[in-house]
Simulated assay, not measured.
Amino acid sequence: MEWFLEQEPVVRLGFLFGVLGIMAAWEVLAPRRALTIGKAYRWANNWGIVITNTVLTRLIFPAGAVGLAFFVESQGWGLLQVLELPFWLSVLIALVVLDFAIWAQHVMFHAVPALWRLHRMHHADLDFDVTTGLRFHPIEILLSFGIKAGVIVMIGAPVIAVLIFEIILSSLALFNHSNVRIPTGIDRVLRWFIVTPDFHRVHHSWYPHETNSNFGFNLSLWDRLLGTYRAQPQDGHEGMTIGINLFRDPSWERLDKMLVQPFIGPADSYPINRRPEGEVATWPPAGESAGKAGTTR
């Protein structure tokens, strides 16, 4: 067990950097959109967030999700530890339940204004590329770990299922946030099963009705089944505006300013079913230019 726990970070980092290298190269060879902000500036600050989050989670939760699963399994806690199911079925159920939990958590972070304040740092990226998939506020990362830990304990997720899920989650987050061009026919088939970059990019549109769609990270079926699927952005993938209306100045891409974003300005224009009085469900508001809308809230 100790050996496995020692090697687990190595395995996960190997997959992380392997997928990152592949997607970064793909972005250079076949980009989907032209970037609006210098890549060196954005990447330096986005990686600053990644390093901050990694240090925090390892300090506060040194064993991580896999270590927790080991403990849960040793104690015999959780539904899957009680049910006499074939091991492969327990692993499959755990993977599906964990993925749904991440989807539901994502919706919750859009629906509750206080949680949206944390999550909107992810959406405030003015471009959409592989590093966007790693850009989350440290407080959101800690809350997310707590939610995931609760699910692991409740269902008694097998250790191998948690390890596989952690690898899939980080790998697909890099894939579906990448600025890569995939042939339309291939994308059309893939999105029936997994979240593709074109599928998820809609979620990063600055229109609230598009931001509040396509919540999936791994499996695409949750959005289809639960009515939050939107096939394409209304302005097209090349013409759509990435980001949110509040943080349009590139200076908000700086690490120190990203960390304080949850405490800046109102949080009333994007949370699900929460709009200022009289505002319609489109963005920018009628009669207001996109440039003006980007600086008024």
Rank of each mutant, 00 (worst) to 15 (best):
H122C: 10
T132K: 07
Y41E: 13
F136H: 09
L89D: 11
E2P: 00
H203L: 15
N179V: 02
T295Y: 02
F263L: 09
E6G: 15
M1Q: 06
L68Q: 05
I160Y: 00
A157E: 12
F71Y: 13
V72M: 11
F215P: 03
N218W: 10
P276A: 00
R230S: 08
K257C: 09
W192M: 13
R58A: 02
H200D: 13
D129E: 12
K292L: 10
G21D: 15
L35P: 00
L98H: 07
Q261G: 03
F199C: 04
A101I: 08
I186H: 10
L29N: 11
R201Q: 07
N53M: 09
E277A: 01
A111E: 11
R224L: 11
F87M: 07
L59T: 02
I51Q: 04
N245K: 13
A286M: 04
S178G: 07
A69G: 05
V96Q: 09
E288Q: 13
M1Y: 05
R254D: 07
E6F: 14
P284G: 05
P31A: 12
L95Q: 14
G287I: 05
G133F: 06
F165M: 12
I93G: 03
L80A: 07
V195Q: 06
P31W: 14
Q7L: 09
R254E: 08
F263A: 01
E288W: 02
Y207K: 09
L221R: 04
F215M: 15
E279T: 02
A40R: 15
L246H: 06
E140M: 00
P31Q: 14
L115Q: 06
P197V: 00
L255R: 01
R275N: 12
T282D: 08
F17C: 10
V130C: 12
G287S: 03
I37K: 02
W283H: 09
N218E: 13
P285K: 03
W77H: 11
I168P: 01
A149V: 04
N218P: 02
S205P: 11
L5A: 09
G21I: 12
S74F: 07
A24V: 15
S269G: 07
T295A: 14
A25L: 15
P271D: 03
D249T: 05
L142F: 11
V97C: 03
L13I: 07
I272Y: 05
T241I: 08
